[in-house]
Design a protein around this nucleic acid. Sequence first.
DNA 1: GGGGATCCACTGTTGGATCCAG
DNA 2: CTGGATCCAACAGTGGATCCCC
Lengths: 220, 220
Amino acid sequence: MMPRTERVLLARALALAGRPLGDIATGSEARGKGAAGALVERALGIAPSSRPEPDLPALGIEVKTLPVVGGRLVESTWVCSAAPAALAQETWVSSRVRAKLARVLFVPVDASATSLAERRIGTAFLWSPSAADEALVRGDWEDLADLVARGLASVISARRGRALQLRPKARDARQRRRARTADGDEYWARPLGFYLRRAFVQRVVDGVFPPDVEDQPSRS
Amino acid sequence: MMPRTERVLLARALALAGRPLGDIATGSEARGKGAAGALVERALGIAPSSRPEPDLPALGIEVKTLPVVGGRLVESTWVCSAAPAALAQETWVSSRVRAKLARVLFVPVDASATSLAERRIGTAFLWSPSAADEALVRGDWEDLADLVARGLASVISARRGRALQLRPKARDARQRRRARTADGDEYWARPLGFYLRRAFVQRVVDGVFPPDVEDQPSRS
DNA sequence: GGGGATCCACTGTTGGATCCAG
DNA sequence: CTGGATCCAACAGTGGATCCCC
């Protein structure tokens, strides 16, 4: 069931194009904010996992749904959690962010319908960061990971980072987790996660599906 | 609700003496092998937790129920899990085993009734290991922890250890967890846990409630 | 008797993301 | 617009121990 090659994965994803999410829903799994992603992954034959690896470990491919309306991305894109203990042991090369972004299957989903079941799956595409993309993300990651590992996450806001940002990722604003600084001091940290900025992913989408001039609202 | 002093904790536990477990059960929590322990902890005002700390972190006290029949302990006593990654970073002084055994509230429960609800709570007592007890447990722990940390857990059996032993602790015999040796090699380990041998805890009980001579079956 | 196998509840964390106030 | 807040499901791990066959 799990796709063994990139080609099979892409073929399956393209076969979903045009279908509403209601077509691939089977039971009660279709609730909550992550429902679209969960449905698409299951339709692709990817088993649910709670591991910090790409969805297809053997292929090194991560699957991400992208909510779009008329070609415009409407949200930033979740990457992975930013647990201080894990970050303290990572370098960019060994990082989960790099591993997850090395190869991504983006699956656009038309978010113009309010009902989840009516949202139509778009044309999926595979992506790997260009050298410039990677340098950009790497720069952000090294800055952010360093601050988190040093226990300075509380001074970070989502304004930091050009392509990659850190934002809260928790049940609510009161959540705290134990963490310790490089010096071994314990403190209570807010759970944070890495996200790709909307503008960054929008450029990726535009590179694959060049926007028509008429689609671009002009100022004149 | 959570007892703030040892005195309050012990008073609450002694107030339970003589009562059947059915008295302190409220709902559906009373199933499975750990039900007696869960019921007693809740009756003492201890919140359920999934953390590798003593039940009362502020007091450093661990609560353990002891199944007894006529003064004789019928089971070995669970201490804590023996995850290789955690053990590799522990010394005896920093170990979870030492932290949990430093001060224990033992709550005997008469296991002669087959029905959980009919089992009567006995007379609780606080215990800390004597110097000799601690030396014994420490010796076992250092031997076992060293083997586990080195990835040699598969050569250990429950025969090893005079007071403290390692036994499987999992849903079933097929369970495996990822672990890595000190050299960084990954392998699949069986989940193991630390237990106190029945004979060791029996001596502790006998020190508090000296057995009558008639209670001791003799060979003659 | 005891070593090995197993049972149940709960929590913490991660993964999947979108919601919404200012 | 977007930074901060939040929603849901799944799973691994821990804690609570007892069961059972050799």
